[in-house]
Design a protein around this nucleic acid. Sequence first.
DNA 1: CTTTGTGAAACTCTTCACAGCG
DNA 2: CGCTGTGAAGAGTTTCACAAAG
Lengths: 241, 241
Amino acid sequence: MSSSNRPAARRGGRTRGGRARGIPDATVARLPLYLRTLIGLNERGIPTVSSEDLATAAGVNSAKLRKDLSHLGSYGTRGVGYDVQYLVYQISRELGLTQDWAVAIIGMGNLGRALADYGGFVSRGFSVEALFDIDPGKVGMRVADLTIEHVDRLEEIVHAENIAIGVIATPPQAAQEVCDRLINAGVRSILNFAPAVLQTPQGVQVRKVDLSIELQILAFHVQRSMGMDAVDAMEETGGGA
Amino acid sequence: MSSSNRPAARRGGRTRGGRARGIPDATVARLPLYLRTLIGLNERGIPTVSSEDLATAAGVNSAKLRKDLSHLGSYGTRGVGYDVQYLVYQISRELGLTQDWAVAIIGMGNLGRALADYGGFVSRGFSVEALFDIDPGKVGMRVADLTIEHVDRLEEIVHAENIAIGVIATPPQAAQEVCDRLINAGVRSILNFAPAVLQTPQGVQVRKVDLSIELQILAFHVQRSMGMDAVDAMEETGGGA
DNA sequence: CTTTGTGAAACTCTTCACAGCG
DNA sequence: CGCTGTGAAGAGTTTCACAAAG
């Protein structure tokens, strides 16, 4: 469409008024992993950790870890490592987890209910404040200490509860409409579990969690590893045409 | 550890005996998305589609789509576009979806049960063949036409049912052990829903789906977009210490 | 004339390797 | 010394822009 020759349109708010921070997306995506690992170390009473050890525990390479952390500032001590608690705090702050964000879940099928019940699915920083479904039979039911509301009340409740993040767990046909309504109500961050591509205006962050896509990526690799052993011939002859 | 100066160790089986295929990881990760989009077009009776239209529907840019598809071969017709059904078949074949892979789910909590019940969470190409839990109270229960087995029988049943993919939906403490046992039983592809880093030997594919990580990434962006409006000052003063 | 397929350029991310600090 | 923080090199990915095909 018209988006052919737009000049790149920087994702993620690169620079800004004051100091230009601009943490790379790839780094942001790993910070939660470091945070979880550090919280584990802290619970085990470990006060400091080297980049090498933290990297191993988080499953990444140590140079990458150091470069990632360097984007937050110089929080390490040469010859020693990183102070675990201090780093927990700094990463939490960077991720915006020093305050709680209100979350709404839309779609109370199996998955939506599992998400709502999964109380511990968020250590801290989030609070599920509203649940929605379109089925009048479900409206009024209580799940995880909340009453399921009809999706017609979405805008109203998003405003009242100051919802910052919407989690879409509806069937795929309903996902785009729910998404539009969330955006209309002012939500700018959406976690989408529905197997559907959401069209959103610029400035809205969408992350998707898609079981069948993950499985299909795995299937590709399964097929590959099978090829190593035996299936080679099948492929070479055109396999099943 | 010892993984410091290993020479890169190529992920994903780059070249092989015959022709070197080597589809980039980034492309593999998008193929399922194209596949789903194409299936939708096919169901609506659309016989051919241009890269521009398919890209828009899949939410990517058309040059990227063309380059991705070019890794599979030259399946388009210049001046016309791509034959929808033919492309569905080619992508399915490339992803290894022309046959069914047996899947086991370990951990029958809320999430595990939702996954097992989510019959349609896989269009085709997969078949959930076994469910496991460690809780004797759950063993024997029927979920989604299957009987929950005790996790002690994992190896036995993985062999008997020829399980290709393991889905870990246990609490995080149990994840590594389950993972080890799956690998020991010969499973080389794992989808991990537990919020834990899995240590695996080379050659094992792990994909993780992690709700709290996704939310935390969103929180970062929420905080960012807040900064645009008002919260700027809070940050500058050290916010909430 | 339309649309693919693709070199080449641009950009992002990862890894190396080491200066420099504690 | 040991370990961080980082320039520079390398790898991977995206985008551009256009020649060639239908």
